[in-house]
Design a protein around this nucleic acid. Structure first.
Lengths: 358, 358
DNA sequence: ACGCGCTTGTGGATCGTTCAAATCCTCGCA
DNA sequence: TGCGAGGATTTGAACGATCCACAAGCGCGT
């Protein structure tokens, strides 16, 4: 055998290609391609023969070649931002895993990237907007991903607008709070209903003076959750005045707020905007010698790991993150295959994980 | 203009390609390619001209085409397994973010995938081995990723052997505990030294009866950490007999072990194999009316979020996950660019985060 | 017998980049 | 003036899949 033959030659150290399989099965390349992508076009007999060849050779289609031809990567981009330590909000793990799982079922993979301000790299155009969309641009232009999943849609939400502007497909985890003109698909969790569940639970346990420890007024999410508290309280004819505190999302704020409320208003229960501030409330109870769960009830929000393992167990509102991920992938899939999207937004209802703190 | 011209035509809705840029700059495709990949080959003047054209058109090279030609994707695969709820071990978030960040600096992206047993899909070959390597095979054969990062190398560790066998590049987070024949690069954290730090700290605080709450004897990691306790204790001439408990990684085991030890051995401090069991110890202290930090000291392992926010604050051994990620990417980079790797394994030293519990 | 339509399979072109090799250009020097 | 050396630049050919237009094969009605 002089000069190894042209294309179908079975190179030992080389991965098999369509041509290899075609040769093995005695058909053409296109037929093999059809066997994989549109099996219904083939006669069962032929299909079987091709399948056997594929198995025998251990063939998987080359991703890069397919991506090049079809102009799609079947990758979903997700930006992971810096981890804020000291807050109990480790909800990302659960969401991420669900997203990966749902994506897989729909034939996609998840690509992670970061805002990527590589220490003094950001050129001169250092506007806040630029930083917010950092990383998206390059992935988009190099056709590295088909679409994005964006989170943290509160606070100005520049990514959504920016992506929408250039026609990039994406789905947001979070409502476009302050952008009524926004017209992109999104999935969110109904925080208001979640807090109402919490308050109902506390009322059932006989509590009447239920305080709210929340975030600043500028936080859309915080205010949404807060309306769950006010609405549920008023629905039961219970008072809310002087029982509300607002501040940053930190353990220390929760602690200080609880100490102040305990001194002046003697609430019997606390509904909190997050597990982080709820942990602060627990600190305050420990300091004042009150038994959490017995003397005073506490309910958090996020069902974080901390809530699950903290000594009495912290009752907390649990976001249906698995379902969120499923819906997001579903919407993305429809968007990418140009199917109609009946409703741009989906609001999912959380549940309550009851533990020792209430 | 009849019959739009051949290739360089500037299609409006189409992303610019090498040819577009070449045409704009008045050079050939290859020259543009060189400008991006080997700038030193160009005359400064030409380089500048090409750069301007690239900027003007907002050009980014098409990933798929590049991947196809170079037979590499610049993607690193990482399998994310199901989240185990109820354990404080949410160390993944931190590691993941660091990994994404380090990868970016080295020109890679992180691709997530899952074991992907799609509900009754796994064919008949349902061996344990198959499940363990699920997902890797396809990504590898379809050249979707250049290399893998594998975690959880304890317990049989079939992935490492499997990958090594077929020459797939990967780096492990975790030592090849039970595979002396293994010869792949890895990065790990020196748990023994971490626990020694914890014990030293407790000894400095005047503790002498320091108990150990660990994992089963079958856990390599657990036993490694335990030697940190025994060695440090013996180094100070302190007793260890009867002061050790071993069990599963759960809050409840920690609680039961602590209750038993408190009753029989009256230890003044607990060193724990994980934050999860440490939280169990805190439960036990709360139940027996002992004040954590005052009456009894507790040290955990992982510096999880729970440790950071739990009421007195849990002193904990902190793994240098950021550094682990950097080393992993560094090793992968060397491996992929065929540079020599001087030492296959790197052992990093953890630090101690001191909080109220000690 | 003939043509029509439907199934099934074929070769060629193409996606956008990089590799390998050939060509052009410039400059120093005999 | 001619010529070789060496760098700068260009040309043609992959990489491996899918899309496209078209050709056989086959059943069926007239």
């Amino acid at each position: 055998m002089s000069r190894g033959s042209i294309s179908g030659a079975r190179h030992e150290g080389r991965a098999p290609t369509l041509a290899t399989v075609a040769h093995e099965a005695g058909v053409s390349r296109q037929t093999v391609s059809n066997a994989l992508n549109s099996p219904h076009l083939l006669r069962p007999e032929t299909l079987e023969r091709v399948r056997r060849a594929v198995d025998a050779l251990g063939y998987s289609p080359n991703r890069a070649a397919r991506n090049l031809r079809t102009r799609s990567s079947h990758l979903l981009g997700l930006r992971v931002d810096a981890v804020v330590e000291g807050t109990a909000n480790a909800t990302m793990d659960r969401f991420l895993h669900s997203l990966v799982e749902s994506s897989k079922d729909a034939g996609y993979h998840v690509l992670l990237f970061s805002s990527g301000v590589a220490a003094g790299d950001g050129a001169e155009g250092g506007l806040a907007e630029n930083l917010a969309v950092a990383g998206y641009d390059d992935l988009l232009r190099s056709t590295a991903v088909d679409a994005f999943v964006i989170t943290d849609t509160y606070r100005g939400n520049p990514q959504a607008g920016w992506l929408e502007e250039r026609g990039a497909p994406f789905v947001a985890f979070g409502r476009p709070w302050d952008e009524p003109a926004a017209n992109h698909p999104w999935v969110d969790v109904d925080g208001r209903t979640g807090v109402m569940l919490a308050v109902e639970h506390l009322v059932e346990r006989g509590h009447e003076r239920i305080a709210w420890v929340g975030w600043q007024k500028s936080s859309f999410i915080g205010e949404d959750r807060r309306t769950g508290w006010t609405d549920a309280m008023h629905g039961h004819g219970l008072p809310t005045s002087r029982l509300s505190a607002r501040g940053e999302d930190s353990v220390d704020f929760g602690r200080r707020a609880a100490l102040a409320l305990l001194e002046n208003e003697s609430p019997s229960a606390f509904a909190c905007v997050s597990d982080t501030v709820a942990m602060g409330v627990l600190h305050a109870l420990a300091e004042t010698g009150l038994a959490c769960g017995r003397d005073v009830a506490v309910v958090g929000f996020d069902d974080s790991i901390a809530a699950q393992v903290v000594p009495p167990g912290l009752t907390s509102v649990r976001q249906p993150l698995e379902q969120v991920a499923v819906e997001i992938v579903n919407l993305l899939d429809r968007r990418l295959s140009h199917k109609p999207i009946d409703e741009p937004g989906r609001l999912l209802v959380p549940t309550l994980s009851v533990r020792g703190s209430s």
